[in-house]
Design a protein around this nucleic acid. Structure first.
Lengths: 315, 315
DNA sequence: GTTAGTTACGCCGACCGTAACTATA
DNA sequence: TATAGTTACGGTCGGCGTAACTAAC
């Protein structure tokens, strides 16, 4: 049994049981992959894939178990390499963060500025996507950290670190009647056309909940994937915008007025998600601490180590 | 990075940093081992071993982390092979049980008889030893299950399954005065010379506790490693014996009389210990269920999966 | 001087890639 | 017929073992 064989195996499974595709992803030849998988099956004495003639059709029941273990082996092997890098060059490496627009645009810049100053040799990469993309990036190992408000808790393989709470602001054009209301209510708000986030984004669910709980149906005239689009259409007079408070920048957004409406909606919590069982570099711990000061190295390790599930004994 | 290199690495560490010894254990040549370890160190860019000239002297701090991860990789790789065997031949394999004398001699025989009948193709091996040996056998992977009353909870890598409770009997020669006492007390017992288990064995600690709690100092004239020795010396008239109740066999031990003394001592619990993260064969689950009927497959898996610690992120 | 480890070197096996062949949709 | 996978074959690389060398104790 070779690590290479396990890599081939997992890649085939992840390429939709397409051996040729897997070979391409692995930058090697298709017959090689095919052969190594046969050899592994021979060695284990079990068919991993169901073949219809020559086509790989599905995964056998034993194959599912074997794949799960193979993935763990590869994860640990990756950790080993990471550990090597950690000690050989403490201050160089890469850190890939998968996150959503609001974080990337309004929250991360100053964290990243500090981080880059302290670790100029670490190559930072941002992968932007919706909360589900973000979680998948981390689960698959393409990114190291997921930072998002929604969607992370759906993934059993992610360990979750709550970072900070935030709420929303209403943005309107200058002179808008709602600016005169000292204590805005949801009812008043529901009377106006609303522009806010697309579903499954940046705490959109809390907005819906609040209206529903009051038996109101907001008149959402436009949903957007990011705050910038929302602000643009508010400036155009299409409606009033509900955005994350940190997405309003009084300097840049001079064509708009913001009104804190945290009394109307529940707080949202932005979280970091890390794949369970991952070896973290020192600079990654430091990045997390810069993002959320209460998350020191010990606190993060505690979460990562707690309640590990799906051990090797599972069957 | 190859699995082989990790095997070499771990074996050297476990052979007291003796490369030649490790090579012998691995049935390969010493230069090969030496070279592969250098290659691995090169690849990771870190020294794993501290060398004084040519001698391997100790493990570097990075090396300790790398070794820990390497062991996990190998454990998972072993699990993968086990999984292969499980599916390729459900009813054949080996099961190695590390246990103490009392279990091996008085408790396991009937369990093993049933098991062997159901799984005639499974090769059963017993490793007898003291509780610490037993635990180490399982931690190191030389045995699959540890069965013992004491000592298992000292090992973080063992998952513990309580199996059954038991208490003690007094064994004396026929006609002994203590046989006339309807409700024996510790004070009465302390007046006689006592023969019982060696320290750190078969619930010996509970015996000491009971006497201590009553401010008594028992007159222990002989300690033995197993019940058979104790019974032999009781027959010789050297004193009265305190043994595990299941170690008295009225048919075989006709030269002795037994008296239940469970009211004098706390119950002891016999436990099974399994290395965390181990893949268990179906017949192993069945063995456990035969030994302790309340430990079905689900129950065992739950214990194995709960509270996994020392994840890959640990540092 | 003995024990332990590295360097040197040659052999064999294994993996990989190309090419030809075969089966599926 | 196009697409996907296995079989066949040769080149190359890498690991292993023997042997010679070198350093610690």
């Amino acid at each position: 049994m070779k690590l290479q064989q396990l890599r081939y195996l997992v890649e085939v499974a992840q390429s939709g049981l397409n051996v040729s595709q897997a070979a391409e992803n692995l930058h090697t030849s298709q017959p090689g992959v095919s052969k190594q998988i046969r050899l592994l099956e021979d060695e284990l004495g079990v068919d991993i894939f169901v073949r219809n003639g020559k086509r790989v059709v599905s995964v056998t029941e034993p194959g599912r178990h074997i794949l799960a273990i193979a993935e763990r082996v590869l994860l640990e092997a990756k950790n080993l390499k990471e550990a090597g890098r950690e000690f050989s060059s403490q201050f160089t490496g890469t850190l890939t963060i998968a996150t959503t627009h609001t974080q990337a645009r309004y929250v991360l810049p100053k964290v990243i500025a500090r981080f880059s100053e302290q670790y100029p040799q670490v190559k930072l990469t941002l992968h932007q996507g919706n909360p589900t993309n973000v979680a998948e990036e981390v689960v698959s190992g393409r990114a190291d950290l997921a930072i998002a408000t929604e969607g992370l808790d759906q993934f059993a393989d992610l360990r979750i670190l709550p970072c900070y709470q935030w709420n929303r602001s209403l943005v309107v054009p200058p002179g808008h009647p709602l600016l005169e209301r000292p204590a805005l209510t949801l009812e008043e708000l529901a009377a106006f056309p609303i522009i806010t986030y697309d579903f499954a984004f940046t705490g959109r669910s809390k907005i819906n909940q609040a209206f529903e709980r009051h038996g109101l149906t907001p008149n959402v005239v436009l949903t957007a994937l990011d705050s910038d689009v929302i602000k643009t259409y508010v400036e155009l007079g299409m409606g009033v915008g509900i955005i994350a408070s940190m997405a309003f920048d009084p300097v840049r957004d001079q064509g708009l007025r913001a009104l804190d409406v945290s009394h109307l909606f529940e707080n949202s919590t932005t979280r970091i998600g890390i794949r369970r069982g991952t070896f973290l570099r020192q600079y990654t711990f430091d990045f997390i601490a810069m993002f959320a000061p209460h998350l020191g190295k010990e606190a993060v390790q505690q979460v990562l180590q707690a309640e590990e599930s799906e051990s090797g004994a599972a069957f």
